[in-house]
Design a protein around this nucleic acid. Structure first.
Lengths: 209, 209, 209, 209
DNA sequence: AATGAATGAGTGTTCATTCAT
DNA sequence: TATGAATGAACACTCATTCAT
């Protein structure tokens, strides 16, 4: 029996499986929480027996770590490579970027916030460091903008947390196809964020998007 | 025949145990998540054998339900009975109340947000209804304030979610004894919230507390 | 508050409860088997908390023992005091008595056969002795009838077991209100039993009842 | 590459274990009753940890179902493939077959009668249907024999139950090595059954065996 | 790279029973 | 005589993980 035509390149089957493990785990962890998901469930989703998962990840914890680490790296990379109109204010850039990215990758974001406590200390430290790097971006935008008089924030670190908490909450209620489009949400939140850090009253209504 | 104070009233021992079960479960659920906490751990905290828990709660799920239901009821009652200076703006009332209550009851708040998905559907519905009642308080403050021209919010429901997400995030980073007191935090957040929904520039810096 | 009028005579409440425990246990043991019935279920049927059962029976095993011992004693007493027409053949007496008694007390009979193995050795011995006494009645009827030439059985002990097994099986399929009345069943079985032990052909059709 | 005999084929170890689970469960269920047997006991008999049982049977109930289903199927197959002397009367065939089979497979027979009530409804229905098929064999022998004037039974269904109850009771008292051989028992019961359904007097003493 | 079978620890829950009240 | 609360052991079953094949 010939199987050449349908057989994938050497090694590719394993990578393919690993990818499907990641996807299945991501959905399950986001839906039920890390502790409530069993390796058996992930294996069943992937279409493989539980033992086979261990060819791809040494432990369940490593799947979580992989998902969270990858997510944080992707997030930072996405920020670094994001393209915006030249003229766009840095705060607007951040807000629009954050909302878009978090709506696109809702599951990854969700587990990155919810499953922190299920990370072993070492992994937790790594993720926390990444998160701090990400938050530092906004903090420095607020700091520099304040220094330049464009914004007025008393404590950029606190403001960072406030803004990120506000924006990160969006995927918990936003549903595609509702009466607000993603664009509307971006604009509404951008307006609130701008006003919250404003140094003076302007017309905060957003025109672009 | 007189029963002197030292003898505990019938049933009082059980109520005491139930209370300690609630407390232990609250701490554990908040710390590790509902799914990761075992009845054995709770029993050990309480100083009782696992089977004894079932004299007080029919299932583990019922402990969670009890904690969340009680929390939401207490939150709404606290709002209804909260006392503020006559002159205080409703939004300020809400912000200060919310921050104070959520810092005081950090564990209850935390599990009420984190463990929703571990509630069985019926219980979930009950809790969600309570949450909507609470959010409606802020929505109506924003709605009425907007109508009166005191605030300017395009979408009071979205603003409600934004503000509540922002405020509710506080206990995730705030630690007593840090360089900011609870009062400072209240003031910082109040300023941001006021500005976020402001219709015109005023002096947003808070003086009172 | 006066409770005299409704209070039953001293001791009678306990006896009443004990009786209800017996009845509840009988039904439950017959329906689900001794091992599958919990003291909690019995207590619930009686309308009392589990602990209260122990005021009436020292252990679950003792309830079973009580039911089985009482049943066997009642069975033997019933035989001893049963009244039949003078002219009735002893075998007919036994068959009719056995069927009637076993249809009347189906639950007791059932557990006495099914739950023997759940009796502790001492209790088992007592019950077994009673059963042997009961079977000896039929054996001696067959033995004497054979000696007198009225029946022809090669081995009265084996025949006893065969007949008793046959008769005792009735309650497993007989249902009141079916197309056969209790009387019909008696007659049908009596005919088969008579023929099975017959020494010659006669008209075995039963006329009386 | 040749795989020599000593290496067990893939999966054969599991089938072996499953078989031993069946055997252990059979003995235990027959001895103590389904409800009184724990998975731990079965596992210990098999020489395996409790969890390993679940690689072979999804639940304890499934072990019981497997045993009972297999037994009924085997019983019917055995009847269908049994070989008897050409001249042997159908009733004799049935009686001899039933006694032999039930003495050989005493445990299976015992649990098939005792544990019916521990079957979940669906499984119960399946087993009951098989039992009815088996009883129908005897009913039709009696029916046809009556029509042909060889036997005289008033109600073949009732007679079926009577005879089967009588025969099925044998393993409860018969012990190998007692003063009666299996052959003697067959003959004694055959005589009684023949007489019980006889239409006229013949020499019922069995000569063959 | 995957399977089938196993392990050893653990899960939530139930059990018969005890006992102070 | 009954209750409410507890115990200690057990229950059926699931878990993450291992490993020979």
């Amino acid at each position: 029996m010939h199987t050449i035509a349908t057989r994938s390149a050497p090694g590719s089957k394993g990578q393919e499986t690993a990818k499907r493990v990641r996807m299945a785990a991501l959905k399950r962890f986001a839906g039920a929480g890390y502790a409530a998901v069993s390796m058996r469930e992930i294996a069943a989703d992937v279409g493989v027996r539980p033992g086979a998962l261990y060819n791809h990840f040494p432990t369940k914890q490593d799947i979580l770590k992989d998902l969270m680490l990858t997510h944080m790296a992707d997030l930072l990379t996405a920020w670094d490579t994001a393209r915006f109109p030249e003229a766009m204010d840095p705060l607007e850039r951040f807000v629009r970027f954050h909302i878009r990215y978090h709506l696109e990758r809702a599951d990854e974001v969700f587990i990155s916030y919810m499953e922190l406590r299920n990370l072993e200390p070492d992994n937790f430290e790594i993720i926390e460091a990444e998160r701090r790097r990400y938050e530092a971006i906004l903090t420095s935008i607020l700091h520099e903008g304040s220094a330049a008089g464009r914004y007025s924030v008393d404590d950029p670190k606190v403001a960072t947390r406030a803004i990120i908490a506000m924006l990160t909450g969006i995927p918990t209620w936003y549903r595609e196809g509702g009466h607000l489009g993603e664009h509307d949400v971006e604009d509404l939140y951008l307006t609130m964020v701008r006003k919250a850090v404003a140094s003076e009253t302007r017309n905060f209504q957003t025109e672009t998007g």
